[in-house]
């Protein structure tokens, strides 16, 4: 099962990189989203999979009879998801602002901060 998840994560990262290299900001963000899901999958798988054994205590805080799943990766993923969500939302707003200022989302054509030199020697 871990192997399947590992392969899936690899596939998702590959797809994410493909999207990111496109140069369009919206595709870049989708790629980022995909990548962050792949990363969460990696964390999940690296905590080892134990299906059907939720990390929940019984009534009165008693330990369950069977082994429990590792709860730490789940907590890590939750944290990473929340942070990732916040960052993604910010990036989305930024994309919106960029579209307002530039009229397009081609990252290569955003040259307001680093204008292309008009001639070989701008001082002349």
């Amino acid at each position: 099962m871990e192997v399947v998840l590992a392969l899936l994560a690899g596939l998702m990262v590959a797809a994410a990189v493909y999207l990111m290299l496109w140069g369009d900001m919206m595709r870049f963000l989708f790629g980022l989203m995909l990548m962050s899901n792949a990363v969460n999958l990696v964390i999940f798988a690296s905590g080892r999979l134990t299906p059907g054994q939720p990390p929940l205590l019984g009534a009165g805080g008693k330990l369950p009879e069977t082994a429990m799943a590792n709860a730490l990766p789940q907590a890590l993923i939750l944290t990473a998801l929340v942070i990732g969500f916040g960052l993604f939302a910010f990036a989305l707003v930024l994309a919106l602002r960029a579209h307002h200022s530039f009229g397009h989302l081609e990252m290569n054509d955003m040259r307001a901060a680093e204008p292309v030199a008009k001639s070989a020697d701008p001082q002349e």
């Binding site: 900001m25 792949a38 990696v42 910010f90 990036a91 930024l94 994309a95 960029a98 990252m107 901060a113």
Partner: peptide, 27 residues
Amino acid sequence: IDGGVKYVALNLVSTMLFLMATGLLYG
């Protein structure tokens, strides 16, 4: 905005890599 786009994009990628490395190290 332009500077922000470049900054955000590259730093987010590095963050993802950091997180993945952390996950693998934990594993």
